[in-house]
Design a protein around this nucleic acid. Structure first.
Lengths: 343, 343
DNA sequence: CTGAAAGCGCTTACAG
DNA sequence: CTGAAAGCGCTTACAG
């Protein structure tokens, strides 16, 4: 720990400095760190001792330039224009966290960028990253189009939440989760269960969730009902409006399976405002496992994807693209978290 | 958009390729991108046209190695051991987002890493970053000690939430925010207002918030009361236990100013469980502006720091350390968000 | 305003 | 197992 600014400018030590001190060639120093098996134990120890004495660390820049290995995964979080970072769906932040952790375990750095309207960042052309993971709101069509094109011409892009099927994606077991949620509602005695969602949304997962819901309903001899939402609104507002029109309608409803937690949170708010008791008058289940769903009133029963596995799967996908490894099937398991919004 | 894997290996174009096509020297190509004013307009246009034709982009690796400018800010999010990424305080995720945006606007990439127990990442020694921004839980003493030491020997570290005063920090206007919160409670008619917090916590902001609360109380002729929390517990649990012991106590209480939102959320839960009406029997105010606080029951009145300014201030701090620029005062303004947990 | 040349700190065939 | 040498793609004095 040499104090800097104490007079000595103290040049960063290089492999040459270490070589001199250890009495070996510069290439031997390099090999000691990049390919230690090639070096005899005795020599290796001398080099390591010298490196420690000088506080030497391999310069990433030199190493990467020469070896053409970047060692970086870029993570792009697609947002909506005009929406500040603090309002980004917390689910995406949590996913970002698990991606960064998984990357780190695989020996990659993560270059994170939040993009709304300007999708520049020529990661490959500028050799800044070996691969790109794209996550974020499905709604920013322009953003996804951009990465879809890149994906077509360069295969090192993996994504979560893409509206397009022809990209390298990783997804929740949406149908399975929806099925679990619906079966849970049926077992709890609800019968007039409506799905608050959309089949034509760019959010393909909404369709998959609706299908899982339908299967479970039909197997129980019940009729699935889709109550469509206005996908141009903010999620919570979709939930509020959805409930408002449901309550005005003729059809009896005793439970709501919402296509995502944010919609469910809005729905809970509207139900509370309308004086409806949850879970007594109406059961509600969401999908995503947002942090906020633990503190809603009442706390929301939801389907939660295993985010650790999701992050790992995305990183694995990139590695597979980079060096032809085998990739596991890209469906991430989910689990049902039963809270107080259902009986 | 040349399709890769279509047979042609297609080498990445270099400045030499562009130079050949444009009929100039390689140095001229380099200058066109790094120092365009040095190049006449005619030459510049020729070079740019050639670059576009070849889809050339400056190779970051070569450029950085030669110029010694890394152009990267590392962001370290300190977590608690054993706590998965998805459970990280959402506040830190939101702050992370605004840091990444601010960095991007200043022309920096952000290298994000989540660290719990292993604090390696020799960003400077390995020349991976020009500076490091450290955020995250104040509770991981070991983590902060690590970065404090680094901070002492290398001055390019800025932080949010450090328990130590001798680091380069950026903070909320904690005292001012606490004052606003307390004045709001007093104006709303509450009198027996207790601060649920700690003065001896490593969370220095808790002390500052307590002090702001005290000032406002004294100015109104009221006596400040600190109801201490057990800082070894999880935040929400601190809030639950705090309320439990408050309700068992002798002292009359009609409002709680909680040192942070997570504590307030736990407190709301416990009050609900104990059959206390909020805001009727008890007013509650938090601090942080978590996403979840919008969906608590009732929605939580809270003090919210301007996260966009916080991210910008941290990045500015790093830039100041890197190239001696002037830095603005590192207090981030806050605002009071009145919701339904207060009259 | 432009070019020729050196060199940033590494990795990696090649030779022994 | 180790060394001498070339070269990754740039930037930047130096000279004109």
């Amino acid at each position: 720990m040499v104090k800097e600014g104490a007079g000595k400018p103290r040049r960063r030590p290089t492999a040459i400095d270490v070589a001199e001190l250890a009495g070996v060639s510069q290439s031997t120093v390099s090999r000691t760190f990049s390919n230690p098996d090639q070096i005899s134990e005795g020599t290796r120890n001398k080099v390591i001792a010298a490196a420690e004495q000088l506080e030497y660390q391999v310069d990433t820049l030199g190493s990467r330039l020469r070896s053409s290995k970047v060692g970086v995964i870029a993570v792009v979080v697609i947002g909506r224009e005009g929406v500040p970072e603090k309002s980004i769906n917390p689910f995406h932040y949590a996913l970002l966290g698990s991606i960064c952790s998984a990357a780190s375990e695989a020996g990659y750095d993560t270059l994170v960028s939040f993009q709304k309207n300007a999708f520049h960042g020529h990661y490959f052309e500028r050799r800044q990253a070996d691969g790109v993971i794209v996550i974020g709101t499905t709604d920013n069509r322009e953003g996804w189009e951009h990465f879809r094109k890149l994906s077509a011409s360069n295969e090192r892009i993996a994504c979560w939440g893409s509206p397009f099927d022809d990209m390298q994606w990783v997804r929740s077991d949406n149908a399975g989760g929806a099925r679990m949620a619906t079966e849970h509602l049926i077992e709890s005695g609800y019968r007039d269960i409506v799905c608050l969602g959309a089949t034509d949304s760019p959010q393909r997962q909404f369709l998959e969730r609706y299908e899982g819901y339908c299967e479970a309903m039909r197997e129980a001899g019940l009729t699935p009902v889709l109550h469509p939402i206005d996908t141009s609104l903010k999620r919570e507002e979709q939930g509020r409006r959805g409930v408002a029109s449901l309550l005005k309608g003729e059809r009896p409803v005793d439970a709501i399976f919402a296509a995502c937690d944010s919609i469910a949170l809005g729905a809970l708010e509207a139900l509370d405002g309308a004086g409806k008791a949850v879970p007594g008058d109406m059961g509600v289940v969401g999908f995503d496992g947002l942090y906020a769903s633990r503190y809603s009133h009442p706390p929301l029963t939801t389907v939660e994807p295993d985010l650790t596995k999701a992050g790992a799967a995305l990183v694995t996908r990139i590695r597979a693209l980079v060096d032809g490894q085998e990739a596991p099937p890209p469906r991430v398991p989910v689990s049902l978290i039963v809270r107080q919004s259902t009986r």
